[in-house]
């Protein structure tokens, strides 16, 4: 990675850390969500036709917390930096360096939220397969992070972007996720359907299908490429 890109990453990280409340919320919200949702998701799953147990529900809550927080952070950070990025490029920085900086920030936030979620799950539940659980939550966070970046290029209002993120998330939860025992092409096409299956299987030590891993990976690659392309195009348009 070029030195200017590293400078942009450090500057972005410093900007984030200057608002310690944002960092604090990234650490506080996952435990709140996991504790509040662990029992509720199991009950709710029965309401809408699924059959999740409490451990599986907790795993899903951990995945959702990491995914939604990374998606929101990625959307707002990328949207807020659009003008500054344009000026950096005018000043001579390559668009690829600015995009790499965004990608690095998204990866850092996904790592942080996934780590916090997994630590809370370890502290509150029996976890079947730790590495697979961490991988699934991290991949889900990265997919939502990529979607957040992608959205920031095409939706320029805070409110509209938030509504779209909520909409995607609710569809994921109600239609695509194991919460409602989502099956079929509509469920498969939603962003974190397969990572959710892996996370739940990891929590309860059930078999993990190879196809879930392949589809999770493909979804991650596709959303990352789309986000990178959109961010690069945004730079060249400015």
């Amino acid at each position: 990675m070029s030195s200017p890109a590293q400078e942009v990453i450090y500057a972005s990280a410093k900007q984030y850390l200057r608002e310690p409340v944002n960092l604090a919320l990234l650490l506080i919200i996952p435990p709140l969500l996991i504790v509040a949702m662990s029992g509720a998701l199991s009950t709710f799953s029965n309401v809408i036709g699924g059959n999740l147990g409490q451990r599986a529900g907790s795993g899903l809550a951990g995945l959702w917390a990491a995914a939604i927080l990374t998606g929101v952070a990625s959307f707002f950070l990328s949207l807020a930096s659009a003008c500054v990025d344009g000026r950096l490029i005018l000043a001579g920085l390559r668009p690829s360096a600015v995009t790499a900086a965004h990608a690095a920030m998204t990866i850092l936030i996904a790592l942080l939220t996934a780590a916090v979620s997994v630590l809370i799950l370890l502290a509150t539940q029996d976890v079947g397969r730790l590495a697979a659980l961490f991988g699934a939550i991290f991949v889900a966070a990265l997919i939502y992070g990529s979607l957040g970046s992608l959205l920031s290029v095409y939706v320029h209002g805070d409110l509209e972007g938030s509504f779209v993120i909520i909409l995607i998330f609710m569809l994921d939860a109600f239609v695509g996720g194991p919460l409602a025992a989502g099956r079929g092409i509509a469920a498969d096409l939603l962003p974190v359907h397969f990572p959710s299956e892996v996370a739940i299987a990891s929590m309860i030590d059930a078999p993990i299908h190879d196809s879930w891993l392949v589809w999770s990976g493909l979804y991650l690659v596709a959303t990352s490429l789309l986000a990178t392309y959109a961010l690069m195009r945004r730079r060249t348009m400015q």
Binding site: E19, L33, A36, M37, A40, I68, F76, L77, A80
Partner: peptide
């Protein structure tokens, strides 16, 4: 009090926890 990003984090989670879980008679 917490600005744009912190506020977004909170507003994506508080209604879900309060009304979506603790006030919901199904849960």
């Amino acid at each position: 009090l917490v600005g744009r990003l912190g506020g977004a984090f909170l507003m994506f989670t508080l209604p879900m926890i309060d009304i979506g879980i603790y006030q919901d008679p199904m849960l």
